[in-house]
Design a binder for these strands. Sequence first.
DNA 1: TAAAAACTGTACTTACGGTACAGTAAAATC
DNA 2: GATTTTACTGTACCGTAAGTACAGTTTTTA
Lengths: 205, 205
Amino acid sequence: MAKGSETRERLLGIAEVAVLEKGFGATSIDEIIAAAEITKSGFFYHFKDKNHLARALLVRYIEKEEFILDDLFNRSRELHDDPLHSFLIGLKLFAEMMEDLSSGHPGCLVATYCYQERLFDQEIRDLTRETTLVWRKRFRDTFDEITEIYPARDSVDLDDLADMVSNTVEGGIIMSKALRDPGVLPRQVMLLRSYIKLLFSPTRN
Amino acid sequence: MAKGSETRERLLGIAEVAVLEKGFGATSIDEIIAAAEITKSGFFYHFKDKNHLARALLVRYIEKEEFILDDLFNRSRELHDDPLHSFLIGLKLFAEMMEDLSSGHPGCLVATYCYQERLFDQEIRDLTRETTLVWRKRFRDTFDEITEIYPARDSVDLDDLADMVSNTVEGGIIMSKALRDPGVLPRQVMLLRSYIKLLFSPTRN
DNA sequence: TAAAAACTGTACTTACGGTACAGTAAAATC
DNA sequence: GATTTTACTGTACCGTAAGTACAGTTTTTA
């Protein structure tokens, strides 16, 4: 079992890089198996078709993301009791993490899939939607905690505000890629942080 | 000339929809010519290869965008003399425009190209970069005008703030697609507006 | 009416997604 | 230690797509 899932992981790793660079439709199975030094039959042993590869890629990506976010915001929670300040610390940590990616964020699979939706079956499209809703819930819970203590200085919908976190990251990845400047994403996260700070800071500041 | 450029436009229109739905690599020339009811030879008369189609698509898209943004922010400028309030009006108008797109924003070609960069030649990658810099300059000029009158309540880099406008739109398009809710993009634009408002409003508010 | 523009038609090459299926080496299970 | 399962290899094949080449034809414009 160990050897098999090792090969599977290698295939997924190679495919992920290729998909984020060229898009799913432009990534050929032939190039994946060439890089993985495996035969086509070997590939189809692991994934019955390209759609199954797509799904496995997405599931793996989502799990990795969730783990990273859990870890980061748990740490920020340990650094400060107050939900607002803890979240502001979390955003700073996130920005720093994005800054440390030497060649920039490689890209978000959810975003690439959204921009190529017609290539995927309903199951995959539902997965991207549910993932985005999980992100929303994560940050919505945070903002619920914050508003229990700090009243917002402008009337905003908290689901929209929660979406703004994902929105900033997704937009920042694109802007970083477009400008070929990995620094854009972390700086945009810091701007989001500035908004949260202004929005919830007590009036006398 | 009229008939030729008419066919060319038709090809570009069909290609744009397909590329935004499936990505460039997954859009076949055969499907484009089938929809346009033209032969393959006819296609290659207009575009010598797929890369030339990609470039023409992008150039056309950029020109359309620029025209729309010019029009919108010129109108908002006419509605209010003050640069801050004029910009806030412009963002509201933009949000309304996004809301009126019945099936949501079809997607940004710059974003799809960024997520499939390895498919395109250097010239196209430079084009996406320069376009993003033009967007930056547009909003940077606006924020320069605003800061001449209103001091920012938090220390922010104005280029970053200018990028935040594009960032919000690019992210909003992805979030709208992921959640299958066209309303996300306009609501995110309104959140950006809320930030600009908080950031530049005189302290007593 | 001549020339340029805008195509059609045919034929071919290479690459890719996918199928089918027989065979095999290594690892886990009984 | 034999057997089954896992994880592959190898070969051969099909349909579709991108792209090339080039000769011929219609339509528009000068």
